[in-house]
Design a protein around this nucleic acid. Structure first.
Lengths: 120, 120
DNA sequence: CAGACATTTTAGTTTATTCTAAATTATCAA
DNA sequence: TTGATAATTTAGAATAAACTAAAATGTCTG
């Protein structure tokens, strides 16, 4: 049996579920429409992932006639944003980042892509 | 056997790994120090999770004498931030959010916590 | 009502995850 | 070298995840 709840981190860890989430992000879609975008899996599999996303609070559904319309609950991504914020706003890190920026101001240093200063 | 790579979404889906990541976020720590913060699992389990984080690029290690010092590769959280950005910056959503804000300006409507407008 | 349609649910399989206990590697100190 | 310390690796168990195929549910149309 599948767990009765699912946190947002686990829910977004699955590429399939992220794909579905994107499909219902800005407009609602029926389960069938969603399935048509991913012909490599069965309808049943899509339905199960929709249920999983629902458990995680990432989508909600509305039933009209024979159709079930799904849409994203966009604010449900909040906990992930909070994690990024709480980590990237870390005081010690800020100090280090400033030091690194300072350093790179002195001598240019071609290396791995810079940390995302715009996100701090 | 455990997979040979691990993406950042899967890596951060585990509460245990998020806990470890926080511990090494702003200062490096040895595997033993990390284990001391989580006495409910064996040292071996911590070591395995450190390896998993390393595969995902979220931590890196430096060896000095008997000690292995781990520290976060903070920029490795980038793909997660990109997901949030790409979704929250979605044009259609912006329109909808504006409409919702407009609506809530008219009549106050006590409901679920507002979407994180500050993140858009 | 019968049949078609849209979707969900169940049962079962395969594969991955997370852990433990024990064995292993490596370094240090006397 | 011996014994202690620090960490990794391996083998195996328990649990969870992601599917499929088929059965079940609910709704509409003629």
């Amino acid at each position: 049996m599948t767990a009765t709840t699912l946190d947002v981190f686990a829910a977004t860890a699955s590429p399939r579920r992220r794909e579905i989430l994107r499909l219902v992000w800005s407009e609602e879609r029926t389960a069938g429409e969603i399935h048509r975008q991913m012909p490599d899996v069965t309808f049943g599999a899509v339905s199960l992932q929709l249920k999983a996303l629902q458990k995680a609070g990432l989508v909600e559904a509305r039933t009209e006639k024979r159709f079930h319309y799904y849409r994203a609950r966009r604010e449900a991504l909040g906990p992930i944003a909070e994690m990024l914020e709480s980590m990237w706003s870390d005081a010690l890190w800020r100090l280090k980042l400033e030091a690194e920026l300072e350093e790179s101001r002195r001598g240019p240093r071609p290396k791995a892509p810079r940390a995302r200063a715009d996100q701090i």
